[in-house]
Write a protein that binds this DNA or RNA. Structure first.
Lengths: 168, 168
DNA sequence: GTAATTGCAAAGCTTTTGCAATTTA
DNA sequence: TAAATTGCAAAAGCTTTGCAATTAC
């Protein structure tokens, strides 16, 4: 076990300071929550986590903190569905696929998208920049369930090297 | 010049009636606006168009109408950015790429995504269902401009067979 | 000391909903 | 006539903002 998380936190705070920003308990706490909780979290979820140790940090402060670090390029937010956005640290770049049935989120490796990105640049001059919006569809378990409801053999599908999260 | 639009409108209204729905002036007007305006339009934009001939159709009715036809599979909505969603007729299936700099929307042919979709099903069991969220990035003109600001030779890139729209 | 940050409350923006009145089939 | 639809007003859900008080540097 290392103190990698703490190091990162300090590095991010350094960057903030270097840009004229000020390090406060609220910001430290929000960033800490983001580091601890390695999945995608909404601003409200982060606020709740922060409240465990800092009950007085206001939701609007969480938003402003996330915004500040987003401008520093350290944090990114994604729209996984129609509701609230979720935030994560920028270094973990990936695309998102959301199951429209159960809400599960698959994190897909960027390499999967490389050929498409290349074609978009080559043929359309469009340079994909973000993983800002999710791809919608049906995850394997849900497809199995749905198929089972129709036929008699419910096949089980694996998930490969993706991370799955449930965002309620 | 044909009356294809009117035909389509009537067919859609037929479908609605067949499912127990009722055809009203408001619905006719909303669908008409969607047919006339062949680009993506927000609910509010559609309401404004409708108001030209039917000033009393309420925005909430527009939302409810769009929702009704979306359930019939005739209409689809897309999130192009952080703000309001835009609606279009379902038959024109395509993906969207939005330029984060100028807001231009590229409509990309689905075939471009076929290989990716196939891999997602094969390797991850994930079945892409929608074009529900846009891909963010930089369009060719903006890339040129940005490059021109840095270097001395601003190359011009073509747009191929995509449709470009400006969504303000 | 000065500028940045915070908590709070209030507003903003898009979308949804309850309800009585109206309209469709 | 019965059920669906509408206009209106109000609420809901997420996010942003104005402002005076506080805090970091």
């Amino acid at each position: 076990m290392t103190t990698g998380g703490d190091d990162r936190l300090e590095r991010m705070l350094q960057l903030l300071r270097a840009r004229g920003g000020r390090v406060t308990n609220a910001r430290r706490a929000v960033l800490g929550a983001l580091l601890d909780h390695r999945e995608h979290a909404s601003a409200e979820a982060l606020a709740e986590m922060v409240h465990d140790s800092h009950p007085d940090v206001h939701l609007s402060t969480v938003y402003r903190t996330l915004d500040a670090f987003e401008q520093l390029g350290v944090v990114t937010h994604v729209h996984l569905g129609h509701g609230r956005a979720v935030y994560h640290l920028t270094d973990e770049i990936h695309h998102h696929a959301v199951c429209e049935r159960c809400g599960a989120v698959l994190q897909l490796p960027l390499t999967l998208f490389a050929p498409l990105h290349r074609r978009l640049v080559d043929e359309f001059g469009f340079e994909v920049d973000a993983h800002h919006f999710a791809i919608a569809g049906r995850c394997a378990p849900c497809r199995s369930e749905l198929r089972a409801q129709l036929s008699a053999d419910p096949p089980a599908a694996g998930h490969g090297n993706v991370t799955i999260e449930n965002v309620p």
